[in-house]
Design a protein around this nucleic acid. Structure first.
Lengths: 129, 129
DNA sequence: ATAGACCGTAAGCGCATGCATATGATTCCC
DNA sequence: GGGAATCATATGCATGCGCTTACGGTCTAT
């Protein structure tokens, strides 16, 4: 069930992201930086459950597209601090809205109450993991 | 969200399955055969969203362990019909119970009502995917 | 009888991922 | 000051997976 559901949900999001030339991980990174606006790469990778070595390419790409900024941390020169640019924030907002719309479309056979419960529980489970 | 949730659910199930020397796909196959007791390999693969070429190893393993049976279909000699053995059914029941228990443990901070809604919605979404 | 489709099987290709190693630079602690 | 740890980076290895191709055998429709 999990496998199928995951794949199905991913298949739902994928076209939205692809249309903006963004990868899943790209979107995940933007989301994480939207939630916590300033982070080191290591912290980000840990938070999003990505391999820190593997997200470097993703970050390079996002940076090159002007969606995030990497700044040296004055307090520790080993560190880059990541933040969203205004363009990154705008794109993220747009994508999130589009994905929410698509989710709504897929959930619209549920009652409003059920839907709210489901999303709330998902959020709670996500927060706990 | 999807990625992390999937990973979390998988991380929950994995130790239970590993303890019985079963893979995720192994468990998925047992579940599918429990639900529909007699199926061709192609139908099974389609149902569980697996690649028909990739599940052959899984089926080989399950068969070797006496958990499933492959029988020629008298109506079509190209086809193997798959079914659970009693041992397969017993193992599946045991694993399903253990996984349910673990889910309950993880969901136990939710109200009973919320939990029921959540699982019901998950099921509905799965059915629609 | 023949052509095309299907079944199960084996294997190839490319990609993603988890994990590990190594590097240079930097920081922290003794 | 020196050693160990940490950061970001690059890269290797093994594995899994989606997709594809090919094969021998079988089935269906013409």
């Amino acid at each position: 069930m999990v496998t199928r559901l995951s794949r199905w949900l991913i298949a739902m999001e994928q076209p939205i992201l692809t249309a903006q030339g963004l990868s899943m991980w790209g979107y995940v990174v933007l989301t994480a930086l939207d939630e916590t606006p300033l982070r080191t790469q290591t912290a980000l990778a840990r938070t999003i459950g990505a391999d820190k070595t593997r997200i470097i390419g993703v970050l390079d790409d996002l940076q090159q597209r002007g969606l995030i900024r990497r700044e040296p941390d004055p307090a520790d020169r080993r560190v880059h601090l990541l933040r969203l640019t205004p363009a990154g924030r705008r794109l993220h907002t747009k994508l999130r809205r589009a994905i929410r719309q698509e989710e709504d479309r897929l959930l619209n056979r549920l009652s409003v109450a059920d839907r709210q419960v489901f999303l709330r529980v998902l959020q709670a489970l996500d927060a706990q993991s």
